[in-house]
Design a binder for these strands. Structure first.
Lengths: 210, 210
DNA sequence: TAGATTGTTAATCGATTAACAATC
DNA sequence: TAGATTGTTAATCGATTAACAATC
């Protein structure tokens, strides 16, 4: 079990490290020093070494880091070696787009079910999965070992639906609804607030990028 | 012109303030103190006052903040009083979902054109807009006063396409492609790396949410 | 062994929180 | 005027960077 007090900032940087290390690996690079990686990623070498050392020593003095090894270690830290079954709640534009997107499955996030309130969508097939009524969620979660719910419904229903999901013992919610969910601490929540992101972009345009 | 050295952290919090103030306004609340807002948003009152005072004094001692006024001021700071024409580059799942999503238009972000490399998609209509070949982008940007490009293409082509957009004098890129773009400083870039977000969720599941 | 580069401690920087005088 | 609450300065906390001894 890893250290418990890893800061948000460090965790948020791990996926980016993972991406760069994957690219390095794919181009056949065997080892890399924190200095070379720092140039590539435009961060300080110091930060790189500090970040990795939160999880133990992955490098070797005089040598640097073995790319393949470090890549796999980060995957392990991020929990990417475990499979996660997920359901998509809300089969609108965004829900359908996510359902059709293959790349998450490659990383072990498997879409098992899709749910919506709109009877017009019931039975609609997305990558072999039929949209079901939201009423079926509770039963479905029990029977299919679901970890993650992807919330892609409008903000109005989102809080209530999230609470339902918590009662169904979901572990995590990937929240695309534009509200704060305020769930118990043991539920993992990641918000993707697209409109917030667009507003930040707007700010940068108006106020100069820096 | 506002102060230039506003920290990233402050700007990133503005959309959330904006959302809460909009909700308060919609429920007919006229004024609010930093303390009451802090309880609502689960942040410190001190932070709220510091954040707002980066942009000048919006409150009144003994009274608090006028909800409507503050709401409008934040909109102005974020540049939401200006319209932005945008194009979507990449008419796959995500590009189509964003094209079909109405809510951004309400905030003044107008979809003017949609582009893709896939001839099968040419002419496909999304909310009255026909998908065009990527070759038309340069001409289209010139003729339609486009500020923002939404990049929803696979990572391979993204860097090249971003560079093309920069040559076309785009002001900002909303980047959904899973690469870092490294563009000149005057180009605003907001990354939405969905797979990074999903990995953070995975981390929280495996390592406990806190 | 000598050179390279990590792991880690110490120094710096920036962001958050606390406190309180100013003022509505 | 008295009470409330801001705007702002000072104190604290945490994150980043620098430096260097340990060691491969």
């Amino acid at each position: 079990m890893d250290d418990k007090n890893i800061s948000q900032a460090v965790v948020a940087r791990l996926p980016r490290y993972y991406r760069y290390l994957g690219d390095l690996r794919d181009s056949g690079i065997e080892r890399i020093s924190s200095q070379d990686l720092s140039k590539l990623m435009k961060v300080t070498a110091s930060q790189i070494r500090q970040d990795f050392n939160n999880f133990g020593g992955f490098g070797q003095q005089g040598y640097g880091y073995n790319v393949e090894y470090l890549y796999n270690e980060i995957a392990r830290i991020l929990g990417l070696n475990e499979k996660h079954n997920l359901i998509i709640v809300g089969a609108g534009n965004l829900g359908q787009a996510l359902a059709n997107y293959m790349n998450f499955e490659r990383r072990g996030f498997i879409v098992k079910g899709i749910f919506d309130n709109d009877p017009d969508l019931y039975g609609k097939e997305l990558r072999g999965i039929h949209v079901q009524p939201v009423e079926n969620i509770e039963q479905f979660i029990k029977e299919n070992d679901i970890d993650i719910a992807v919330l892609t419904i409008p903000k109005n229903g989102a809080v209530k639906t999230a609470e339902l999901l918590v009662r169904c013992n979901i572990k995590a919610i990937w929240n695309f609804a534009h509200v704060d969910l305020n769930l118990p601490d043991h539920i993992a929540v990641e918000n993707v607030h697209l409109s917030d992101s667009l507003m930040k972009l707007s700010y940068s345009i108006v106020n100069g990028n820096r």
